[in-house]
């Protein structure tokens, strides 16, 4: 821990990633899988779980090895470890469900370059004992999965009228195809961020003076 920084309680450590430093909504990291696979809630959750698995595994290993690995090669080591766990999860998903595997496609392997994971390894796991590191990783991973799910759910509801494959609006629902297309991904994530910004700005300044408008 950096001296001077307040030691977080275990709960805070866990909540850090879920809420305050949510990788999707606050840090906006690892966007590629977030947008690419979030066309349905199932895909989004699967991706979230896969990422969580890699995050936990690599965090554990990095944390365990934190005193052994020389500084010069630490990044190389982290990448190696992450790539290992990604390969493992790749096979696991294939074994569990080929349909999910096909749906997630290359983005499973692209978890390797997800900045959230490398960022956690570098910023947290390499400086903390396994217990705390895992706690933090769990928070981040769950936060990431929640973010993914939030986007996937919106896209599936509007894009197919379903959630987890269950029709919500009856057979005549007109799907908003754009939601499962690339622009829809950008728009939905953008809209979520807007919503958070808006809530934050309201919280920060309940009676905000009118911003400089061109007409004045």
């Amino acid at each position: 821990m950096i001296p001077g920084q307040k030691q977080l309680s275990n709960l805070e450590e866990l909540l850090e990633g879920i809420w305050k430093q949510n990788p999707v909504f606050v840090m906006v990291l690892g966007m590629c899988p977030v947008l690419a696979v979030s066309v349905s809630a199932v895909n989004a959750l699967s991706m979230g779980l896969a990422t969580l698995f890699v995050l936990l595994g690599s965090t554990l290993l990095v944390s365990l090895l934190r005193n052994v690995v020389p500084r010069e090669v630490r990044i190389a080591t982290y990448i190696l470890i992450i790539a290992t766990f990604v390969t493992v999860v790749d096979y696991l998903i294939q074994a569990i469900s080929l349909a999910v595997y096909d749906a997630l496609g290359a983005f499973i392997q692209l978890i390797v370059v997800n900045c959230v994971i490398l960022g956690r390894a570098e910023a947290h796991a390499s400086k903390n004992p396994p217990g705390r590191a895992l706690l933090n990783a769990l928070g981040m991973g769950v936060g990431f999965a929640i973010g993914l799910f939030a986007i996937g759910a919106v896209r599936e509801i509007l894009g197919a009228g379903k959630l987890f494959g269950f029709a919500l609006f009856g057979p005549d629902f007109q799907p908003w195809v754009i939601m499962v297309l690339p622009p829809g991904g950008f728009f939905v994530l953008g809209a979520w961020l807007l919503l958070f910004n808006w809530l934050n700005s309201r919280k920060a300044a309940p009676v905000k003076p009118v911003e400089g408008h061109a007409h004045v």
């Binding site: 690419a36 696979v37 066309v39 349905s40 096909d102 749906a103 983005f107 894009g159 499962v180 829809g184």
Partner: peptide, 8 residues
């Protein structure tokens, strides 16, 4: 990989 009809 990305938005695919296949998933829906």
């Amino acid at each position: 990989g990305s938005a695919s009809s296949q998933r829906l």
